[in-house]
């Protein structure tokens, strides 16, 4: 049934992504593709994989943005431009429009933990759910003709044949910088909820009214370039020289 759960789900499983930490290495993109092409549902196909116009289905993609402060086009003039790597996958929204637009009941949100999934045996591949998603979280697999999306690695997180440390989504497990965190955002005392509270985690496109479960942690304020430049200037003078170096400094001055 493609109606959303009538009550708030007891658990709100999701990701917290730390934009201060992400280095944009794309390891999560690859591990996601690797795990999910052999796991839940149809494989994530590639089109023309060895040709010039290669493309394929991905459930997680990293964009990179440049953020320029007002009047900050010239370095140091009014703050500094910065590069922010931006991982983006399904946000498992509470008011998920991709679920309600589905005509077949293939798209659904689980009442127990809030994960949004596609039952591929019911999907007709009409593409309307991808149209309804403002975040571009859903991609039609062109080989299978069904809609693919992040499952929050539902086949890992409850999988007791895996070691406990591996019972997190593949992208979280693989992130070498620890920029991705998995947990229950419905539980205020969970590690992810505390992280969101401390760092001011926020929703993407709140104006779309989708109430995403996943949260993003903003980049921390950056140390200005001028502040770092101080030590470089220091290297040019000898005020702090002591002992032998102070004597040598004095001698060299006299020569």
């Amino acid at each position: 049934m493609t109606s959303l759960p009538s009550l708030p789900t007891p658990k709100k499983l999701g990701l917290v992504i730390d934009l201060d930490v992400c280095v944009g290495c794309h390891a999560c993109v690859i591990s996601c593709k690797e795990w999910n092409t052999g796991g839940y549902g149809a494989a994530l196909s590639d089109q023309d994989p060895y040709g010039a116009d290669v493309s394929g289905t991905f459930l997680n993609r990293i964009h990179t943005f440049e953020v320029v402060p007002e009047g900050g086009q010239v370095i140091g003039e009014a703050g500094e431009a910065r590069i922010v790597h931006f991982p983006k996958s399904c946000l498992h929204c509470e008011d998920a429009p991709c679920v309600t637009v589905c005509p077949t009941g293939a798209s659904y949100k689980r009442a127990e933990d809030g994960i949004v999934l596609v039952d591929e045996s019911k999907c007709i591949g009409c593409g309307l759910c991808a149209w309804s998603c403002a975040y571009g979280a859903r991609e039609m697999d062109l080989a299978a003709g069904v809609m693919k999306k992040c499952t929050l690695c539902v086949d890992r997180i409850y999988n007791e044949t895996l070691k406990e440390v591996d019972r997190v989504p593949s992208c979280v497990r693989t992130c070498p910088a620890n920029a991705r965190h998995f947990g229950d955002l419905g539980d205020a005392s969970s590690e992810v909820s505390r992280m969101v509270a401390e760092r001011g985690g926020y929703d993407l496109m709140p104006e779309q009214g989708t109430r995403p479960t996943n949260k993003y942690l903003p980049p921390r304020p950056r140390k200005p370039l001028a502040a770092s430049a101080g030590s470089a200037v220091l290297a040019e003078n000898t005020h702090d020289a002591k002992g032998f170096f102070a004597w040598l400094d004095g001698m060299l001055d006299r020569i």
Binding site: F58, R61, F65, E66, V67, V68, E70, L204
Partner: peptide, 16 residues
């Protein structure tokens, strides 16, 4: 992106 508090946001690189 939620980065508007820092400044004007512009795409630097596409995912692929």
């Amino acid at each position: 992106t939620g980065l508007g508090h820092i400044g004007h946001v512009r795409l630097f690189e596409r995912p692929h």
